[in-house]
Design a protein around this nucleic acid. Structure first.
Length: 319
DNA sequence: AAGGGTCCCAACCGCTGAGAT
DNA sequence: AATCTCAGCGGTTGGGACCCT
């Protein structure tokens, strides 16, 4: 768009003229921005930047606030639950980072995008297949996600035994209550596809593999995202558990976190076990199982070994 | 200890769409 | 209807942190 170019060009001129700063933010700039927003609220970023006395573009201020300074941001590693959600939502919507982020309270689209590019794409690279290929999607759905569920369940059980002692589940921010609930001592996996759970119990082989992906990554349809641009009202950390179970609960009338009606589609009704019949009647599915994977001769075990670290030991320490 | 390679994330860029004028 | 301004999105990149030899 020409206008955009003109705008950017003018901004560039200002930068070149020394009127605008770019690069890493200083503590002083952060304080200016936070204090200004605290007293005047956010929005109108260009005028905000000027009024606050910041030599930054409105864009830069907005990004700094949304991605770093917002008080409701979650810090720390992406939890297994969040990984699971990201994988699932990406399989539906592709690179719609903002949309995906709307369903992960406190996480930014930038964070999720970075997670995808650094972790998920790394594994695709190891498999020597495209991250958008059906093979890799199958690996995610029938290997990675079930294993995530397995780990979540195992950690939850361990946590129960230890009376809530520190477990992998509470690393990286889970201890703030997200996904934890008094009524839900263990994550309620009843709304997850059955093959995740059966795989977790070592009975995955032979489990019918339902087709879940409705969209193709990277080819998401033109936006019908009515929520784009809207400021979501994030659930508080305290009701994070309710948020997660609600997100899985299509019958929930509370709508606490149902910011997108698309998520009110399957996985399935609350308390109902996922089956291909209950989700997409009439569709036939490939009878995939772990042992059936033959992707360029790659070894499932070694592949999974390479993934293990990403589950509990992300290389990036919590900030 | 030092140098090189890799990883990760904050920030920027280019673009689009919506709303205002 | 045309133009302008702004907010927001997804892609890309610079550079610091970390790891390995």
């Amino acid at each position: 768009m020409d206008m955009a170019h003109e705008r950017d060009a003018s901004s560039e001129e200002e930068v070149m003229a020394g009127d605008l700063r770019r690069g890493p933010w200083t503590v002083e700039e952060d304080l200016l921005l936070v204090n200004y927003i605290a007293s005047h609220g956010e929005g109108r970023w260009n005028s905000l930047a000027r009024s606050a006395g910041l030599k930054r573009t409105g864009k830069s201020c907005r990004l700094r606030w949304l991605n770093y300074l917002r008080p409701d941001l979650r810090r720390g590693n992406i939890t297994p639950q969040e990984q699971l959600l990201i994988l699932e939502l990406h399989s539906r919507w592709g690179n719609r980072w903002s949309k995906i982020a709307q369903h992960l309270p406190g996480r930014t689209d930038n964070e999720i995008k970075n997670y995808w590019r650094t972790r998920v794409q790394k594994h695709a690279k190891q498999l020597k297949c495209d991250v958008n290929s059906q093979q890799f999607k199958d690996v995610m759905r029938y290997l990675w996600m079930p294993r995530l569920v397995e780990r979540i369940q195992a950690a939850a059980g361990q946590q129960q035994q230890q009376g809530g002692a520190d477990t992998p589940l509470s690393h990286g921010g889970c201890s703030d209550g997200l996904y934890e609930s008094p009524e839900l001592p263990a994550p309620d996996t009843s709304c997850w596809p059955a093959e995740y759970c059966s795989a977790a119990g070592g009975q995955m082989h032979g489990t019918p593999a339902p087709e879940l992906s409705c969209t193709t990554a990277g080819s998401s349809s033109p936006s019908t995202d009515s929520g784009a641009g809207a400021q979501p009202s994030w659930p508080t950390q305290a009701d994070g558990a309710e948020w997660f179970t609600t997100a899985c609960d299509a019958s929930s009338a509370t709508g606490v976190a149902m910011r997108d009606t698309e998520l009110a589609q399957p996985p399935c009704q609350a308390g109902e076990t996922w089956t291909s019949e209950s989700s997409l009647p009439g569709l036939s599915f490939p009878d995939l199982a772990v042992a059936d994977f033959e992707i360029g001769g790659f070894d499932v075990d070694s592949f999974w070994t390479s993934m293990e670290d990403d589950l509990w030991c992300p290389t990036q320490a919590a900030v």
